[in-house]
Design a protein around this nucleic acid. Structure first.
Ligand code: FES
Ligand code: FES
Lengths: 146, 146
DNA sequence: ATTTACAGGACTGAATTGGTCCGATATGTT
DNA sequence: AACATATCGGACCAATTCAGTCCTGTAAAT
């Protein structure tokens, strides 16, 4: 289904939240969990990943938390995905040579690589800032329908 | 890793083989298995899938086999992927509304949908014929190096 | 009849994913 | 110093998905 992992998605959701705060705001895992309504362990796990990928900067101890390591404009979706789930590669043969059992008789590598890099480009062109921009339903006045 | 399933890849490899034959050529599962050096059960399974997705036409009985249901120019990679692994959707929320637990507080659906359709367009623009075209190593004179 | 081939599943083992939990470490407060 | 708050870095587990096999049935040709 050509999917991005659910965890990766959570990661992006979290980053978007950060991007929506004033630049430099520090938030804790607990706060993020409440904001996104995602279970704390998951949030915690993803924040750690994002920090170790240098997309977030972390501060430990009391008064600690996370903050965006860069300006939202300078972070691309491609980068986030790569950080969380490795290189963007539609299949193994694209990622590196010699990974596909049949590279020898199936000259499909070249065309796939072109397709793949087109997708990669698409993903690179979208910044975290853009993602955060048209994500308006922030504090929508809960007008419950059913 | 944003991957296409291995089986789907096999499916495409198979279709490309067909595209490289003279239009209307009928080939059996066994022949395809030999041509691609993929195990027969797998080839068989994928050919069946492709047939039931109407990408291949099948003929049973002795002298039976499969053939391309359409001209290679008229089949897009997107179509093949969709046939074999469902709608191209980076995540559930993109495929249809109400599938994502948190659609309510995470207004990320809209931007994702734009990104997704960009990718979909990319994939739609590549035809089976193109894929088959720059796949030259057909009957390469086996110059074995070790 | 017999042989060739596809149709349509069920089925299995392996791998990946989604999610939880814990002990250790760092930092600020009292 | 003691304590509370947070991140760090894993291990761990259940559930799903994936990759691959196999079997029974049916259609067509000889
Ligand atoms: S499938 Fe990997 S090289 Fe063709
Ligand atoms: S993750 Fe599905 S709507 Fe935001």
């Amino acid at each position: 289904m050509l999917r991005i992992s659910k965890l990766t998605d959570y990661g992006i959701v979290l980053l978007v939240r950060f991007a929506q705060e004033a630049s430099g705001t520090t938030l804790t895992a607990r706060e993020m969990s409440e904001a996104t309504e995602l279970p704390l362990p998951v949030v915690s796990k993803m924040l750690k990943s994002l920090a170790s990928a240098d997309l977030l900067a972390s501060q430990r101890g009391s008064r600690g938390g996370y903050q965006l390591a860069r300006q939202p404009e300078a972070v691309s979706v491609a980068e986030i995905i790569e950080a969380l789930e490795g290189p963007i590669a539609l299949m193994e043969c694209v990622a590196a040579e010699g990974l596909c059992d049949q590279e020898s008789h199936c000259g499909l590598r070249a065309p796939w690589q072109r397709i793949n890099s087109a997708i990669q480009t698409t993903l690179t062109r979208v910044s975290l800032a853009e993602l955060a921009a048209d994500t308006p339903p922030r504090h929508q006045t809960t007008l419950a329908i059913a």
